[in-house]
Design a protein around this nucleic acid. Structure first.
Length: 459
DNA sequence: TATTCGTTCAT
DNA sequence: TGAACGAAT
């Protein structure tokens, strides 16, 4: 009787799962294992919204495995130690895991390789699980370059890269009776969760994608930047936890075809672009990818401004609406993310790491590669070739929330102001102004711009 | 084969 | 403005 272990990480699904597929093909029995890693808690990355979503995912994965005659084995502690323990309990000869890109994932892989090797157990690291195209498989043609720093050429090459046909979910999974499992964590047991947090799990992810593909994909190109329309796929948490397979999404979007599908695939590629940058430069999660020699304002020197930004009371309605959506849902519209991050780094001139940390504390899809590199993009220290652009929240509001619906949805103090006037409450008459309990702008846009341009040494 | 240069393009 | 590419050298 041969036994293999499948270590689930951010790939909490049964459909299109190469490690599971390989393990089932080669062994009589498989131990599907998930380890709640103490290291993640200690590092402060166990944000309540993601822990709650993760709880949904683990319950659903366990349910899916039980439907197929198996179960999920859940342990907590140190990942490498727990894997080794399962290996010695079951006599497994092989461990399968998806390749990851973060520093954490790379260290985990190294430790597994070392410790399993000394136990005489083989480690199989599978590419193209967390991304459709594995980082490093597509590189610029010039010598010595290990990753793309510009999106468009990457997109072209990524689009031409071969992709496997998605695997079906297995019909049956035989799990040895021995290994004990902790009960799957309950979402209800997590404190501090956003009231409007989405539900996790593969079944929910597949249901969402199917519905959105039918009703949202066709108009995605025209509508994805419309804040009030809320017409994005909202699949980011499922991609983060791997309850949906990027390979399958690309495959099914390409089958659907059309401009909406192309625009959607392009966005999926942005995620992979950031993954391949981080895989090549793991330090970009903490330090400037391309330094502009900033002397950022910090947690200490800009405490009041930062608090106002976090709580959604900067006095700029669209920024505040976006920040309150984040607090309430643990998720933010992508256009809001760009605007809110530009405001913090460019207008308030606060260190991008402060903003990135706040987003990671709340975002259910909070992902090191996407979050940190998008923040660096907006800070002008990332891969943007126009590092000094500043988004004007009023102009952005006119373009992406022309009639103010998004603002009124999230900023109840302004719910009584009609139309686009809601974006400039400082222009309201004294009487109407007095009726809404809404703050004055934290800083003038011209003043913020001057500070930024001065700090960057621009004329 | 390696370097340079013009062109394209950019969340 | 700078990255990427491909053509020219």
């Amino acid at each position: 009787m041969t036994v293999s272990v499948v270590l689930f990480t951010s790939d909490l699904r049964l459909h299109d799962h190469p490690p599971l597929h390989a393990a089932l093909a080669a062994a009589d029995e498989v131990v599907p294992l998930f380890v709640l890693d103490d290291a993640i808690e200690d590092a402060g990355f166990g944000a309540p919204n993601r822990r709650a979503f993760l709880a949904d995912c683990l319950r659903d994965l366990d349910a899916g495995l039980r439907d197929r005659g198996g179960r999920l084995v859940i342990r907590s502690g140190d990942v490498a130690e727990e894997v080794c323990r399962i290996v010695s309990e079951t006599g497994a000869g092989d461990v399968h895991v998806a390749a990851g890109v973060s520093g954490y994932a790379q260290r985990r892989e190294e430790r597994l390789r070392e410790e399993l090797g000394s136990q005489g157990c083989r480690l199989h690291v599978h590419d193209a699980v967390i991304t459709a195209v594995a980082p490093g498989t597509v590189t610029p043609s010039g010598a010595g370059r290990d990753h793309f720093a510009v999106f468009t050429p990457y997109f072209r090459r990524w689009s031409d890269a071969p992709q496997r046909t998605p695997f079906d979910a297995p019909r049956t999974v035989r799990v040895p009776a021995g290994p004990r499992s902790a009960a799957p964590p309950a979402r209800a047991g997590v404190a501090g969760v956003s009231a409007g947090l989405a539900q996790g799990g593969e079944a929910e992810g597949r249901r969402s994608f199917t519905a959105w593909r039918r009703h949202g994909l066709g108009q995605y190109e025209e509508r994805h930047d419309d804040l009030a329309g809320d017409a994005t796929s909202r699949l980011s948490p499922h991609l983060h936890f791997g309850t949906l397979s990027p390979t399958e999404l690309v495959h099914r979007a390409r089958t659907a075809a059309g401009p909406g599908a192309e625009a959607f695939v392009r966005q999926l590629c942005w995620r992979e672009f950031h993954h391949q940058v981080l895989a090549a430069r793991p330090s970009a999660s903490r330090t400037d990818y391309r330094s502009q020699h900033d002397r950022w304002r910090t947690e200490q020197s800009a405490a009041d401004d930062i608090a106002a930004w976090r709580e959604g009371r900067t006095g700029y309605p669209l920024v505040d609406a976006a920040m309150r959506q984040l607090l309430h849902e643990g998720w933010m519209h992508n256009r809001g993310r760009l605007l809110a991050s530009s405001f913090l780094v460019k207008t308030l001139y606060v260190d991008w790491r402060v903003g990135a940390r706040h987003f990671l504390d709340l975002l259910v899809d909070g992902d090191i590669a996407n979050n940190q590199l998008n923040w660096q993009w907006m800070a002008g220290t990332g891969t943007d070739s126009r590092p000094n652009r500043v988004l004007n929240p009023v102009l952005q509001a006119r373009r992406y929330d022309p009639d103010g619906t998004y603002v009124r949805r999230w900023v109840p103090e302004l719910a009584g102001v009609d139309g686009g006037a809601v974006h400039e409450p400082w222009k309201l008459g004294a009487e109407e102004r007095a009726r809404c309990d809404y703050p004055e702008p934290l800083v003038g846009l011209a003043e913020g711009l001057a500070r930024f341009r001065d700090a960057r040494g621009l004329d």
